[in-house]
Design a protein around this nucleic acid. Structure first.
Lengths: 116, 116
DNA sequence: CGGCATCCCTTTTGATACTG
DNA sequence: CAGTATCAAAAGGGATGCCG
């Protein structure tokens, strides 16, 4: 979504967007760590290194993804001063993904774990 | 799923797999075209070039993704002889994703389209 | 502890061209 | 029509190191 390097690959996203809402959703949250972190935060507010441990993401990845998620309005950062610390939690928009993630979890349990 | 030569991502995958079904789901279907094609096929059986048009994927991409999806047991190919043609449709496993995709669509409509 | 920068590898996608 | 092959590029991700 965001080119880390300077050059431009702008404006080529219009074609599918109109027809299919799923496509738009996929554009926003359709990557391994985005989904995983989003899912992890459904449990509630967490700190940076809590996420590092619970998700297994590297700090650089976590940093980038959290940044993206914040920009997309899915996650919100809160900085505490007294015991200096950062907290991340879902916005309503992020929380609203819960049903979708649950469905995904259900599907996974039915088709990937127990070979029912 | 696929061999990662070189860097060590193996341990991470194991770690998350146990704890989180969502992660496993993401591993299987978590890419733009996988999701899009899966969603497109929820409508029913389609032909190669129908998919090309409706999804906007290039033929090479479509070919590869369809191939992957077939290997994963999410999609099934059927070749017709009389009017020579190939048809793709979802397997039960693929159809079972429908609720998840719908939830995703709902979310998208609520949070991405109408800026309520 | 939280997090950015850099470098580099892998995966995914695309463009293009070429077959049965 | 349905694909495959190739080549190239974008995006995702990880390792490491540095910094407040």
């Amino acid at each position: 979504m965001k080119p880390r390097t300077g050059s431009g690959a702008e404006a080529v996203e219009e074609k599918n967007s109109e027809a299919c809402p799923v496509v738009e959703a996929v554009e926003e949250i359709g990557s391994r760590w985005r989904l995983i972190i989003l899912h992890d935060l459904q449990e509630g507010e967490k700190r940076f290194n809590q996420l590092e441990k619970s998700t297994g993401a590297s700090s650089s990845t976590l940093s980038r993804v959290l940044d993206d998620l914040e920009e997309l309005g899915l996650v919100r950062r809160r900085v505490e001063e007294s015991p200096i610390a950062s907290y991340y939690r879902l916005t309503p928009k992020g929380e609203a993904l819960s049903p979708a993630l649950e469905e995904l979890a259900d599907w996974s349990e039915e088709w990937l774990e127990e070979e029912v």
